[in-house]
Each structure stands twice: as structure tokens, then as C-alpha cells.
Computed example of a mutant assay.
Amino acid sequence: MNEPAQPGERAEAAEAAEPAHGVTTGAVARRLGVAPTTLRSWDRRYGIGPAAREDGRHRRWTSGDIAVLQEMCRLTASGVPPAEAARAARAGTVPTAPTAPAAATATAAPARQPGSGNGLPLGDVRQECRGLGRAAVRLDSPTMDELLGSLIGAYGLVTTWEEVMVPTLHAVGRKWETSGDQYVEVEHLLSWHVSTALRRVGIGALSGPRASAPPILLACVPGEQHTLPLEALAAGLAELGLPARMFGAAVPPEALDQAVRRTGPVAVVLWAQARSTAHHALARHVADTAWGVKGARARTTVLLAGPGWAGPVPAPGMLRPGGLREALGLLRGLCEAASSPAGGGGGAAPQRS
């Protein structure tokens, strides 16, 4: 004997039966991961609407209407402006997408003005940021995953990080700060997908040749929870074949001290997002830590990474890179020096100020 259907099952059955008469706007919105107001706005502004309306007023979407909406979502997520995406979706054509990163072209395509429909304060940024932002606001995980992977493949890790990932993350963070508890889920989901994309880069590079230099240690200072910039650096080091040890968020001073003494690193990267977390005493301690036999003591070079270290010129034995690209260049130079016969290959990284 069949059991009676539960409320959720009855609702699903009702939605499954709706296509004969058309699907409601709410059901389509849930299926596509967009807000019902977005669908109504697309209908009003761009004519992306249902072919028929019940009683002349209520929207009822057919399978053909939904296919056009799906294409509209795909195009806007790839950075195509909504008006252009709507024309292409209705016509069944594919608009020309940007083919080169802004940093690599003499004349970048002009960025669109705010008001693209994603609600994020992106300002003057490249189109891919808008596509990623729209997908994040829709909580569209598959699109974010596909976008990040294709961008890294097309433009490289550093450009994707600096020109797409960081601006979009900052925009979501600003929206969170100004909207109370709203957009927390957007920030968390976007951060998770960025982290996943970065780790895929690192994992994909593990099978390549590895440098013979001592490792590079990556750590957030105590009290610092922002790890994504260090994850980007770890992925970049993996691409270069440079050995690294990632310790993540809020590393206690004692743990970092033990890691330095045990591994004899060529460099230690300390990340501080804010001045309140920057631990200058810890940075000096790490830079002054020596190991090895008497007469051949070695020290490491400390990279002060992140905006929290802004201020006085770093002391001898410390460097302050201006971003991911510069940090990778400095660390590659330190590893090459440590691997050369003059460098000793034992963690005796050159002292630089």
C-alpha cells in the first residue's frame, strides 16, 4: 500500500506537472538560482519573458522560455553585458567574448558602469569580474567553478588573481559590510570556490620538476584568519616548481619557531591583513633565528606580505613585496641563490633589506 505523499513531495509533483500549462516565475527562479525580481527585471528591460501569461497577467514559462533564460544566465556569468546577452539569447547567437586580459592588451575593452544587476560595488573592472560576481550572487557554484578554471587556463594564475579574483572578493566584502548580515553566504561560497581553484593549480603542478632549494614557509601571523592570499602564493610557487609548506591561519609563534628550526627554510612569508594583526616582534624573531653548526650558521629571509605591514622600511633580512607577482619573483630569486654553489643550498638565503 502506498504511503501518502509528504508536503515537499506534493510540491515537487506539482512543479513537475506544471510544464503543460507553463512554470511559475518562482519555480523557474529556484531552478536557475536567480531571484524572481531578476527574472521580472529581464522581462521588463530586455524582453526575456514568457511567451504566454495566465489571465494576461501572471507569467508562465515554457521549456523554450526557460532555455532562453538559461542562455541568458550563462552569458551574463561569462561577463557579457545583460542587454547584449539578452539579444544573443533571444536570437540564439553567441556574442564575442573578451579574448585577452586587460594587463596584456594595449587597449582594454572599456568596463561597464555600475548597475549591471548583480548588486555588487565593482566599479571600473574587467567584464570577467562582473560575470563572477553575478554567479556568486546567484549562488551558482557550477558557473563559478567553470569560470575560475577557464580564466586561470586562459590568462594564468597571477593575472586571474589580481584582475578577477581579488576585485570580486573585495566587492562582495564591501557589500557584506554595508548590508548587515546579508551576502555572508555569497562571500563564503565565493571564497570557497576561489580556494578550490587555487588548490587545483597547486595539485596540478605537483608532478612537475621541483627545485632543490630548502622550502618556503607560508604562515598567517597569530590572530590572522585571511588565508586566500597565501593560498594564491602557494599555487604560484607550485607552478614554478618551488617547494613550500603552507601552515595557514593564525599560526602560534612557538609553532612557527619550531617549523623554522626543523626545516631551515630559504624564506618565511608572514601574512597580515590589518595593522592590528601585524606581529613585528615575531617577524624580527624569525629573521634573527639561526641554525646549523657553529661557524656555518644560517638564517632565513622574511617576506612581510599583506597590507598590515605598511609602515617603516623593513629591517635587514626582511622584504615587503607589493603583490603576488613581486612575491613570486623575490622567492624564485632566493631559491635560485640558495641552490647555487655560492648559496650553500642549506637555507643560507642572502640577507636583503
Rank of each mutant, 00 (worst) to 15 (best):
M1F: 09
Q6A: 14
E12M: 09
A17I: 02
A27P: 06
V34H: 04
T37C: 02
S41L: 10
R45K: 12
A52Q: 13
W61H: 13
A67H: 08
Q70N: 06
V80N: 05
E84V: 15
A85D: 02
A86Y: 00
A89N: 09
P98Y: 00
A109I: 10
G115L: 11
S116W: 01
G117S: 08
P121K: 00
G123F: 09
G131E: 00
A135M: 06
D140A: 14
S141K: 12
Y155A: 15
V158T: 14
T160G: 05
T160K: 03
E162F: 04
P167I: 03
A171G: 14
W176Y: 10
G180M: 05
Y183D: 13
S191L: 06
T196M: 08
G204L: 09
G208K: 08
G208D: 03
S212H: 09
P215H: 00
L217V: 12
A219Q: 01
V221A: 13
G223A: 11
H226S: 09
L228Q: 10
L230E: 12
E231T: 10
G236A: 10
G236C: 08
L240H: 12
A244R: 11
P253Q: 04
E254N: 02
A255V: 12
L256E: 04
V268E: 02
A272S: 15
L282H: 00
A287Y: 01
G295R: 09
G295H: 05
L303A: 14
L304T: 02
P312Y: 06
P321V: 07
P321C: 11
A327L: 06
L331P: 10
A338Y: 00
P341Y: 05
G345N: 02
S353T: 15
